[in-house]
Amino acid sequence: MNTSDTKWSDLAVRMGSAAVMVIVGLAGVAIGGHPFNLLVALVCGLSVWELVRMLDPQKPAVALQLALLSGTALLVSAYLPAGWALPILLAPMMVGFGQLSHHRTIFMSYAVLVQLAGYGIMSLRGDLGFGWMLWLIVVVVVTDVVGYFAGRMIGGPKFWPRVSPKKTWSGTATGWIGAAIVGWITAILTGATGELIGISIAISMASQMGDIAESAIKRHTGVKDSSRLIPGHGGVLDRFDGMMGASVFLLIVGQIIGFPPGLV
């Protein structure tokens, strides 16, 4: 098998899994409400399960308990005022700190981001509706897909080879361009100002930061994938780390800049 064949050997499996995720994800976003919140809670609970398994693999029961606790806390928080939701969101992290034997600081820091990401996604869908949730998803997906293909076709210098050996500067920068195009088209369709283009690029960067953060945890713990739940993609964290970074970023800066720009 030549180098070119090896480079694209996982493409069919990745595309098949991606198609299933797109169908399930779009259905959840379109329906909204309770089914969407339940889907988000499930994804975040599985993410916490994978995180604990990476950080403290000798405690599978604790991983399951924290996953259930985190997913339940996130689902409950969706139906509470924000002031009451916040301590409930953070409570599982405090429990996990007392349960784990290794990497407790990493667990607390990253699991908080998982919970805030889930809360931000549910808030975006509930407050702004299907269209803006779809915009966020498309920005993240385009960043990932364009970066994947551009990085393999163009190649060039690596972004951070010690942590993410496959990520290139060409794929990273091309992802920003793709996000900018998504922002430009969305601004035209919605009447938002041109600032949405800059926000889309920043969202793209935040999604890449989420990916890099998860890659750093995997390198630190010596694992290749967060799990094997998704054929061709690894685990839930491997697939949704970018969405988590983007969601947390939007949750924070949305309070500063007024989102959507020109429409609030």
Rank of each mutant, 00 (worst) to 15 (best):
T143R: 06
V142Y: 07
T172F: 15
T190M: 10
A192N: 05
K167R: 05
L196Y: 05
I181H: 04
V145L: 14
I137N: 00
L136K: 01
V141F: 13
V163Y: 01
G198T: 08
I197H: 02
F159M: 14
W169D: 04
S164K: 03
G155D: 07
Y148N: 05
I197T: 02
F149N: 09
A180W: 03
T174F: 14
G183N: 11
Y148R: 05
I154D: 04
S164V: 08
T143W: 01
G147A: 09
G191H: 11
I154V: 15
F149G: 11
P161M: 10
K166S: 13
G155N: 12
G156Y: 12
S200Y: 00
V145W: 09
I201S: 01
L196C: 09
D144K: 10
P157N: 10
F159C: 01
V163F: 06
L196D: 02
W169Q: 04
G198Q: 04
A173E: 00
I199W: 13
W184A: 15
I203G: 02
W176D: 05
T174D: 00
I203N: 01
G194R: 04
I199G: 04
W160V: 14
A202L: 15
V182C: 12
G194M: 12
W160I: 14
T186H: 10
D144Y: 11
Y148I: 06
W184V: 03
A179R: 03
K166A: 13
W169L: 14
V146N: 04
W176K: 03
W169V: 12
A150I: 14
W184Y: 14
G175I: 08
R162E: 13
L196H: 06
V163H: 01
S164M: 10
I185Y: 07
I197R: 02
I197Y: 02
V139M: 04
A192T: 13
F149D: 06
G155L: 11
G156Q: 08
V145A: 15
K167C: 10
R152C: 07
G183V: 11
V141G: 01
A180F: 06
I137V: 15
W184K: 03
L196I: 12
S200F: 00
G194C: 08
G191A: 12
I181T: 03
V145G: 05
W160Y: 14
V140Q: 01
S170M: 09
A192H: 06
W169G: 08
A173Q: 01
F159H: 00
I188P: 00
A150C: 14
V141S: 10
T168F: 06
P157T: 09
T168Q: 04
I197L: 06
